[in-house]
Each structure stands twice: as structure tokens, then as C-alpha cells.
Design a protein around this nucleic acid. Structure first.
Length: 586
RNA sequence: GCGGCCGUAGUCUAGCCUGGUAGGACGUCAGCCUGCCACGCUGAGGGCCCGGGUUCAAAUCCCGGCGGCCGCACCA
């Protein structure tokens, strides 16, 4: 590949025409940050708007916009402070950095999981663990956390973090949102916003950033009614999947199955996930990515986030890096709500009434709070709250089998015995039950999608670039040119330009250079239509309308332009039907 | 963070080895020309990633930083 690859060409175009470029260039730049220029900002907004149209407006999803900075407790609850931190040790000799827990496992055959940094350091020293590269001694392990840390207000001990995902905004606001949709499951809550992850070494331009924009929604449903009523609309749809089961058998190519088959074979565990994956596939189609250049790859247990019971990444083929993730479809179960419930003390369960009250026998946990306090001190409250959302059957089973129940929190395990908790059976009358909704999360990287859209739109015609952007995403919608820069043509063209602006179009007026050059400029930034005012316009008020992709032209009465353009953008008419075909000498 | 390669107008690039403060192409702007696809002509503006060192003199040599690409590691 000695020729500049498509990535290089797209990046060059993006910089040159003002879609995006590296941030802080005048100071030498800062890796992992990107600034959007005039065209990029417009494109980004349109992409966001389209996503909202697809996943918010047309689904039962509400849009929110929550704070970016959060106090530490939020990410303690979500598990990010515990799971977002890797213990890293540095070689004193060669300076290489290693995962301390991995080295301990490799060289001393001891699991490094759940150990503190001090314990890790002690064990590394005791077992004589050395740098695998040069054999040098290792420094005391340090935590590397990908959360951006800050302080809130003037007190340095009040730690805050920039959010690494927008999802927590939907979870912490769940009670209000559930109330606002008037207490009905299922429903979704979405937001689009900036997120921050302090990547060790960001690469790959717009694909891996430290500050980026996520579009995602949490879709809450009753785990006892996991059926997706819209599934019937998509059962016959084909999905290209590479599930864990096949990856483990060494399969590298995705299989094409219908949604029905994917669910039958257990490839996709949640119906709602399957439904939204189909939507995501179509969304990428709309951005210009055909089916054969995208598929869904399941994350292996070790790759998965701490909150996820199943995750599929939607990956798209790019010129440079092969398949790159553009969206993630995680089944987060009730993990987040459960954790926020435990840490905040708020009851985040929803009440689901039975048709009629029923008498049921059930197991109940009877906690000896005094003993709990004596054994676990300041953790007792957290344990108490966690027990409230733990199935009694699970505890009963563990106690009767092993005499001890291992209660897991983020990074901690508490051992509970019969002294702390007893399981009793009782009969009660129930009018309904309180449940924690289960959650599927489709999450899209806006910056990546924008790049993908540009790359798939990028074409060359001779030595000219034609950016065949989806029409509804083009940053400039219409261009207006006077054919000649004299004889009153510019005046007439300006008039039409202003009228289109008044009609709400994003329009550009250009009278500089030859007509061909002006068409070329518009092709390069993806403007789908160009209006040219010529001498005939002065006689009969008609203009020519030119199509970006075919370079064909039709003649249209100037007054009908808004209507014609709207139909074209909606795809209601073909370009040939937009007006009288025009013969060009071109 | 490690290793390799790299950093010159808006963009692409010559010059770097063999120090003497930069040349081109495209684009942009102004004017002429131009009756539908980057035509032509004239003119203008615009640059050595940052810092330090060596030297009479640094785009050029040395060191450090920052950034880019590739590989390793990392990627909740």
C-alpha cells in the first residue's frame, strides 16, 4: 500500500475543508483530542439528529442531558473506580510498564485478583518476580485509572470524575424518568454527550480519543416479561454474527443468521438486544455501510465490561484497520440499578401489580444487624442494602451447602454466615412485586460514526473528489451559483440564495472562479444539489439544478425549488423527475 | 510507556546526508477571461512542530519535549 490509503485521503480532506483536525495544533497538539470545524460541526449535528430520529423519536425512548462531572460515589457505585483501575508496575532498569497482577499470575502462579497495591508489591517481591523483558527489578505497583479525575469546589478532598460513559446519567435519574413516563415498562432513556477516558496511548485519529461523544440509551424492561413486541417486525431479518461460541471454536468469519435463528440458538440472549441490533444495522446502512462490510462480534467473558452479561460489538470495515467497533450492545441486566440502590439507599425497584392479590410462600432473609455491624463495621450498611436485592434462594442454597455466603460487591467479597443472616420461610399476601428492571444498552461512538460516514462517502471521479454523503447528512444542502459574474446574474442568484435560506435550507452562495470549479468545490464537501442561475433565468425564472452524484441537470422554476428540494431530500422523487432534463455540452 | 519511521505555507511536497535562514504543485484571495464541470493569463498573501545545545551561521548536526504512523502493551 504505497499509494496513500483512503484513511490518509479522508484525513487530508477533513483538515483541508474543515471537518476536523487535531486539537491544540499551535502548541504542538495533544493526542486523543479532536476539534471539529465548520463543516464537521454541521455534520456532527446532523448525525446526532438522525440518531435521535432513529432511536429516540421512533422508539419508546426519552432524551435527557445530564451532568458530565460526577462525585466519586457515583462511580464507586457503578464499579468504575474499582474496575477502571489497573495495577501497573514499572521496571527500574528498562522503564517498561507491566500489569502487576498479570506478572504475578504468569511468574508466581498466584491470582492477583482483588489484591491491594501493597499486597501485590509484597507478593511480587517475595516471589522474586522480575521484568519479563530485561530481568530488572520492579517498582511498587501503582494504580492507573482511566477515569479523568478532578476536584469539585475548593476542597481537594472532594473528588470528582468526568464521566466515561453517559449511561450513569440514565441510571441515577431512573426514578424520575420512570415517573415521567408514568410508570410503564418497557421504556428507554437516551443521551448524547461528551465522555472522557484517559487512554494510555490514543491512536488511530478520530477512532480512539480521550474526549469523545457517545450516543447511547438504556432500555429498561421487566426481566419477567423480556419479550420484545416489535420482534415480529424483524424476525426474518438477517444479522451477521460472530458469537462467543463460534469464536471459541476458532471461527473467524461471521455467520449470517436470521434474528429468529440467532435467538433460537442462544447467540443473542435478550430479545430487545436483537431488535436494536437490527436497528443498528439499518442505521449503518443509512450512513453508507452495506451489510457485507459490517457484523456483530460477541465480546468474550474476559473482554466484557464488569456490568455486562452479554455484549456484541457492531464492527465496520475501514480501509486502514480492518473491522472497528462503532457501537456496543450490552445487556447490563439490573447491575447498575442494583448498585446505585445499594450505594444511595434509594429504592429503585418498580412495583408490578399482580392481577389479583395472591398468597405466596417465600423465603425471607432475616438479618442480625447487631452481628453484622460487629463483623463488618462501616460496611454493614452497604451489605444490608445489597442483601435487600439478593434473592433469598441464592443465600439459602449457599448457606446450606457451604455454611457461608459470599456476597460480592465491587472489588470486595463479604463472607456471611448463619450468624449474620438466617433464611426463614413465610406466607404472605402479595398484591404485586417490586422488581429491578433489566437493561439493554445500545451505545454508539459519534466520532467514529462520523469518520465511517466520511470514509464510505469518499469517492474519486477523475482527479476530483466527490463526497457522496447521505443526502440528509450533508452539511451544506444546496449551493447557488450565477453562471457568469455579470449581466445581473449574481443579483438574481443572491435573491434565490436568500429565498432558500428563508425556507430553512443550509445554503452556500459562490460566484468565484469558473462554474466547473464551483461544482468541484461543492462535490468535495458533499453538497448534494447546486442551483445555477443563467441567462434563461432572466427570461423565464427557471434555474438549473445539478445532482452531485450523476452530474445530471434539470431545469426547475425558481419558485418551486423549496418544494422540489424537500422532495429530493426525503427521497420521494428521483432526480430525473425533479424537472425538465437538460442537455449539457460537458 | 517501549521500539522503528516521520514532522517544511491551507494541503501535498523538494531541500537535510555534504550547515550559508527555503523552491515547486494544488488550493485561497484580487483582477482579466469564462454561456455548465478544478480552462487560461496577471498579481497577492502564506511555511521550516516546540525548547535547548554545537557553530561566525541551524530547516539541515546533537539532546530533550510534543505530535503523527506502524509494532508491543493497554483499550472499563
Amino acid at each position: 500500500m504505497s499509494e496513500p490509503d483512503k484513511y490518509q485521503k479522508v484525513i487530508e480532506l477533513a483538515k483541508r475543508r474543515g471537518f476536523f483536525w487535531p486539537s491544540y495544533e499551535i502548541y504542538g497538539g495533544e493526542a486523543g483530542f479532536l476539534d471539529y470545524g465548520p463543516l464537521g460541526s454541521l455534520l456532527k449535528r446532523k448525525l446526532e439528529q438522525k440518531w435521535i430520529d432513529w432511536f429516540v423519536r421512533r422508539e419508546n425512548v426519552v432524551l435527557i442531558d445530564s451532568a458530565i462531572v460526577a462525585p466519586e460515589i457515583v462511580f464507586k457505585a457503578s464499579g468504575h473506580t474499582a474496575h477502571f483501575t489497573d495495577p501497573i508496575t514499572t521496571c527500574k532498569k528498562c522503564g517498561r510498564k507491566w500489569r502487576a497482577d498479570h506478572l504475578l499470575e504468569e511468574q508466581a502462579k498466584i491470582s492477583g485478583e482483588g489484591l491491594t497495591l501493597e499486597e501485590l508489591g509484597r507478593l511480587l517481591a517475595e516471589h522474586g518476580v522480575r521484568c519479563p523483558e530485561c530481568g530488572g527489578e520492579l517498582e511498587q505497583p501503582q494504580a492507573f485509572n482511566e477515569l479523568f479525575k478532578t476536584t469539585i469546589g475548593p476542597y481537594s478532598e472532594h473528588v470528582g470524575f468526568l464521566r466515561p460513559e453517559t449511561a450513569q446519567g440514565m441510571f441515577v435519574n431512573f426514578k424520575r424518568l420512570y415517573d415521567l413516563v408514568r410508570g410503564k415498562l418497557p421504556f428507554g432513556a437516551a443521551q448524547v454527550g461528551r465522555c472522557f477516558r484517559n487512554e494510555i496511548s490514543p491512536r488511530q485519529g478520530p477512532v480512539r480519543l480521550r474526549e469523545f461523544t457517545i450516543m447511547e440509551f438504556e432500555f429498561f424492561f421487566n426481566p419477567k416479561k423480556p419479550e420484545c413486541p416489535k420482534l415480529s417486525e424483524v424476525l426474518g431479518e438477517k444479522l451477521r454474527l460472530l458469537p462467543e461460541e463460534l469464536i471459541k471454536r476458532g471461527v473467524e468469519e461471521p455467520v449470517e443468521v436470521t434474528v429468529a435463528e440467532a435467538l433460537d440458538r442462544g447467540y443473542i440472549k435478550a430479545e430487545w438486544s436483537a431488535y436494536f441490533m437490527v436497528r443498528a444495522k439499518h442505521f449503518l446502512n443509512e450512513l453508507g455501510v452495506p451489510d457485507e462490510n459490517q457484523y456483530f462480534r460477541e465480546k468474550l467473558p474476559g473482554e466484557r465490561a464488569h456490568y455486562s452479561a452479554q455484549t456484541y460489538d457492531q464492527v465496520v470495515k475501514l480501509s486502514r484497520w480492518g473491522y472497528v467497533e462503532v457501537s456496543g450492545h450490552a445487556w447490563r441486566t439490573d447491575y447498575d440499578l442494583k448498585m446505585h440502590m445499594a450505594h444511595s439507599g434509594e429504592d429503585l425497584r418498580v412495583f408490578v401489580p399482580y392481577g389479583e392479590a395472591r398468597k405466596v410462600k417465600r423465603l425471607r432473609l432475616k438479618v442480625d444487624k447487631a452481628r453484622l455491624g460487629a463483623s463488618f463495621k462501616d460496611k454493614a450498611t452497604l451489605i444490608l442494602r445489597l442483601l435487600e436485592v439478593t434473592p433469598a434462594e441464592e443465600v439459602a442454597e449457599a448457606l446450606s451447602r457451604e455454611g457461608v455466603y459470599q456476597l460480592k460487591s465491587n472489588g470486595e467479597t463479604f463472607e456471611l454466615t448463619r450468624e449474620h443472616v438466617e433464611v426463614v420461610e413465610e406466607e404472605v399476601e402479595e398484591k404485586g412485586e417490586r422488581i429491578l428492571p433489566s437493561v439493554v444498552e445500545p451505545s454508539f461512538g459519534l466520532d467514529r460514526l462520523l469518520y465511517v460516514t466520511l470514509e464510505y462517502a469518499y469517492t474519486e471521479r477523475g482527479d476530483r473528489v466527490v463526497l457522496r454523503l447521505p443526502r440528509d447528512l450533508a452539511p451544506i444542502e444546496v449551493a447557488v451559483f450565477p453562471l457568469m459574474n455579470k449581466d445581473g446574474l449574481p443579483e438574481k442568484a443572491r435573491e434565490i440564495y436568500l429565498s432558500l435560506l428563508r425556507e430553512g435550507f443550509t445554503v452556500e452562495y459562490d460566484e468565484s472562479g469558473s462554474i466547473g470549479r464551483r461544482y468541484a468545490r461543492m462535490d468535495e464537501i458533499g453538497t448534494p444539489y447546486a442551483v445555477t442561475v443563467d441567462y434563461q433565468t432572466l427570461k423565464d425564472e427557471t434555474v438549473t439544478l445539478r445532482d452531485r452524484d450523476t452530474w445530471k441537470q434539470v431545469r426547475v422554476p425558481a419558485g418551486r425549488l423549496p418544494k422540489v428540494l424537500r422532495s429530493l431530500f426525503r427521497g420521494e422523487i428521483s432526480f430525473e423527475k425533479a424537472g425538465e432534463p437538460l442537455q449539457t455540452s460537458g
